[in-house]
Computed example of a mutant assay.
Amino acid sequence: MRERQLHRWVGYGLTLVVFALLGLGLIALYSAAGRFVGDKDTSLLPLVERQLCWIGLGIAVGAILTRIDYHWFLKHSWAFLGIGLVLLTLCFLPGIGRRVHGSARWLSLGPLTLQPSELMKWALCLFAAAQLGKVGSRRQRWRRYATVLLVTLAFAGILLLARDLGSAALYLTLAMVVLVIAGLPLWIVGPGSLAAAGAILAVALSIPERRARLLAFWNMDSDKQGKAYQVWQALVALGSGGVTGLGLGNSRQKMYYLPEATTDFIFPILGEELGLWVTLGVVLAYLVLALCGGWIALFAPDGEGVILGMGLVTLIAVQAIANLGVVTGLLPNKGLPLPFISYGGSNLLFCLMALGTLLNIHRQGGRGSAFSVESQGAQRSGL
């Protein structure tokens, strides 16, 4: 009984943390976007308005996903992969696809832009869960391992061609995590992960822009006005805020000193204006989100729910860690937004879809761990 009560409150906790991050993100965006008022934009705060529209759309889609049994999506996972493949291919077509910083990863939809690689995260999680969550013979399991790995490598390869190295790395990280959970031996996953990291590094070194970023990361002191400029300005913002911050709206770095202050580097603006305690609160919120999501996945009604839930939690958690690592100078600079906080519709839509799917798993689970045998003696469909 106590376990069921805790499971119910885990769902509330997950929802509360997500909406707290959304609210903090709007506050930070409102402050950072204030520099655009009176500039070329005719609307008062166009970034905030567009973000509110994406939040509304994401909440609506997430609410729908909480009510439709996730097993229905698992049955059609190949169809979602096909749709994702078409969207990714369209990014390469002139007039439809749009290049940003040399990466062909955007689709132009009138006044809006869409990043298909973000929505493909959800589709890949569905596909991995549909393949790896089923019970089968040893031969069937190995065939499913190979299928998930090959499909992930194919989509990661497309992203490497589009020079979207960050999303490709996330896809491969997802594959490694779900394969380990599904039972693939570590002596295979370990070397495979190193090989994937080496391949991404080789591609990065072959691209002059990416190679310059990596060299700047290894020796930031020698390139403060070049490729390391953005990270240095982020560190200045975090240092200026101190423990208590300069006060909401009083950031100096947002005044065109810190590039991408509303998207990938919005966290330093939070630190500068609201101080150390708020930034630590954000880190704690992501930790709580990961723990709540992991609990929901662990107590899913079947193995498919375990894989799906853990995949979604992994993508959000790894992206948050990567963003925080970049803005604090611990990782090379790569354009990955901070989940639920950074400005950007595609990533926000994926994150809210993930929330809706996790709540769907939560609604059907809670009757004991999917790895255990129930008290009645009936075993769940395991991994």
Rank of each mutant, 00 (worst) to 15 (best):
V10S: 12
G11V: 14
L14P: 15
L14H: 04
G23N: 11
L26G: 06
G34W: 09
V37D: 07
D39T: 11
D39C: 02
L47W: 07
V48G: 10
L52A: 05
C53L: 05
Y70N: 13
F73N: 08
L74F: 03
K75A: 12
W78K: 10
V86F: 13
T89V: 10
G102I: 02
G102N: 04
A104D: 07
R105E: 15
S117M: 06
W122F: 14
A123V: 07
L124Y: 07
R139A: 10
R141V: 14
Y145C: 07
V148K: 00
F155H: 12
I158G: 05
G166W: 00
Y171C: 00
L179I: 12
G192T: 08
A195E: 09
A199E: 09
A199Q: 06
V203M: 00
E209K: 02
F217M: 06
N219P: 12
M220V: 10
A237D: 06
G239I: 06
S240L: 11
S240D: 13
L248G: 02
N250E: 14
L258F: 03
I266L: 03
I269D: 04
I269R: 10
L270E: 15
E272N: 11
G275M: 02
L276D: 12
T279E: 15
A290V: 12
C292Q: 13
G293M: 06
L298I: 03
L298M: 13
D302F: 02
I307S: 03
I307L: 07
I321N: 00
L324Q: 08
G329A: 09
L331Q: 06
L331K: 00
N333H: 11
G335S: 02
P337R: 01
F340H: 07
Y343G: 01
L355F: 01
R363E: 12
G368H: 05
R380W: 10
L383P: 05
